[in-house]
């Protein structure tokens, strides 16, 4: 949910309307959850969940196989997976899967396995939907001092990784 909120904040900072919401009710750490983000040039009125996403971020690759994390993604869509190993799962045709070890990046930059900001850096690099500077603004709104610097560094490392791999 934090990643979805941050993407919405970054998109808004970049000059578009955005909306982020969770699809679960029980907010507890560790439970599998879904969160959705929309952004648009005009005010967003639609409230339904997203069934055909343009982009998917999978924060925990151990879900792959238990849950069809690729459900509804269209050809040309991008799926960013946090994983340290290759994905051993059939990928829908025309879908671009980007694997990134966001956990290691988070451990290195933050000292904690909290992958939200690294995955956002990867998202910004992979999709080009948001400028990195808007992401940086969003992170500095959410975090302060040393924590802001560390989170921006995690986002930057993931951004550079994806840009380098492309």
């Amino acid at each position: 949910m934090t990643a979805a909120e941050l993407i919405a904040v970054a998109a808004f900072a970049g000059g578009v309307f955005s909306q982020a919401f969770p699809a679960f009710g029980v907010e507890r750490r560790g439970a599998p959850v879904q969160a959705f983000v929309r952004f648009d040039n005009k005010k967003i009125r639609l409230r339904s969940q997203i069934y055909e996403p343009d982009y998917i971020i999978v924060q925990d690759s151990s879900l792959i196989g238990d849950v069809n994390v690729f459900h509804g993604v269209k050809p040309g869509g991008i799926v960013i997976v946090n994983t340290e190993k290759a994905i051993n799962y059939p990928i829908p045709e025309g879908v671009n899967v980007i694997s990134i070890d966001a956990t290691s990046i988070a451990l290195k930059e933050l000292g904690l396995p909290i992958t939200n900001t690294a995955l956002m850096g990867a998202f910004v690099a992979a999709t080009g939907e948001i400028e990195f500077s808007a992401l940086e603004d969003a992170l500095k709104q959410r975090f302060h001092g040393d924590l802001a610097t560390k989170n921006v560094a995690a986002a930057r490392a993931a951004y550079d990784f994806v840009k380098g791999a492309a």
Partner: peptide, 10 residues
């Protein structure tokens, strides 16, 4: 509940 209360929007 949730649909508005937990939604980030401008």
């Amino acid at each position: 509940g949730f649909i508005l209360s937990h939604t980030y929007e401008p």
